[in-house]
């Protein structure tokens, strides 16, 4: 958020117009004392060019978003002749007392944080491996993308089969090596959430790996060479060369992953439908049930608003701390 607004051209232009030469050098066109006919024309041109891409965004993203937020302040229900009225903050106060919602929120946080972290660690390992110049690198890089190419529903059905308590390959393998082979992975209250998290990590790894791999390829070899000349071990080189160079990429992919994971729906919907006994009831599933089973879309919209607000706050905090570290690093 912060970076966006500081790069905002209009803002920058306006505050700097009476000011000194440094900004003037960057944008000479805006520095003319009076706009004149040509500048107006150009502005019109720019508007005309922006419209085609702006319209779909307005119609397909902004309008539904505004509608969704507005719904949160009504008692709308999904019925044949809906007549609903504004109820102010009633949905939100009701939500505040809704123990089920906050329990599902807690599960959602456990899910999103652990999937995001595990994804990062596993994808980092995989990216380093794929970048280490092993044989058949081209093939393995393609193979690593496969989970990405599969629709979430297919992934979920596949893992359902793997986890199947009496015919699944996972239990067969465990049984084969002498471990207990009768674990009911998705049906047992203790294993359901971890089992679902493993699938979440698996399915989300490719895009993290690819992004990190791209970042790794950007790091100049000279840095590594210099470090090894100085006698740095592989671990030291990873910590002091690779990680700092990757920091902006890690920060962005982690925040994107966090949003995706927190909002993920189809995978868990197909795997467990929030069961057993609500143990894997992610907030999006809960909201879906409220909207399409209980048909309280006003209330469900309020849940959506709360979820988005909390996620935005958490991300702002995370990015702020990341960039603050970044700034410090530069000063040093």
């Amino acid at each position: 958020m912060r970076t966006l607004s500081s790069k905002d051209p209009t803002k920058g232009g306006r505050t700097s117009s009476p000011g000194g030469p440094p900004t003037g050098r960057r944008t000479p066109g805006h520095r003319r004392p009076r706009p004149g006919g040509m500048a107006r024309n150009r502005r019109r041109e720019a508007a005309a060019l922006v419209m085609p891409s702006l319209l779909p965004i307005l119609v397909l993203s902004v309008a539904p978003l505004v509608m969704g937020v507005a719904l949160a302040f009504t008692d709308a229900r999904l019925v044949r002749s809906p007549d609903y009225e504004l109820v102010g903050f009633e949905n939100f106060t009701k939500l505040f007392d809704n123990g089920f919602f906050w329990e599902s929120f807690r599960i959602g946080m456990v899910w999103a944080v652990s999937v995001t972290l595990l994804q990062l660690v596993a994808a980092m390992g995989l990216a380093l491996l794929l970048n280490s110049g092993l044989r058949l690198q081209g093939l393995t890089r393609v193979l690593a993308l496969i989970p990405w190419a599969m629709p979430p529903v297919v992934v979920a059905i596949m893992w359902q089969m793997i986890y199947s308590p009496n015919a699944g390959p996972l239990n067969a393998v465990l049984d084969g090596v002498g471990l207990p082979g009768d674990i009911n992975w998705l049906g047992d209250f203790t294993t359901a959430l971890p089992a679902v998290i493993v699938v979440g990590v698996w399915v989300g790894m490719p895009q993290t790996t690819v992004t990190l791999l791209a970042g790794l390829q950007q790091i100049p070899d000279e840095l590594h060479e210099a470090a090894s000349m100085d006698g740095a071990s592989a671990w030291r080189r990873f910590v002091d060369v690779t990680l700092p160079s990757l920091r902006p990429i890690i920060a962005s992919i982690t925040s994107l992953n966090f949003i995706w994971n927190f909002n993920s729906f189809s995978l868990v919907y197909v795997l467990t439908e929030g069961g057993p006994g609500g143990r894997t009831m992610l907030p999006m599933l809960f909201t879906y049930l409220e909207a399409f089973k209980n048909r309280n879309i006003g209330y469900a919209a309020a849940m959506g608003v709360v979820l988005v607000t909390v996620v935005v706050l958490l991300l702002a905090l995370y990015l702020w701390s990341q960039f603050r570290q970044d700034d410090k690093g530069k000063v040093r």
Binding site: L65, G68, L71, P152, W260, N263, M284, A301, V308
Partner: peptide
Amino acid sequence: MNTRVASIAAIPATMLL
């Protein structure tokens, strides 16, 4: 990935569609 990003827009968007 669109489905993931959609988040809150999903409900009214579905209705529109």
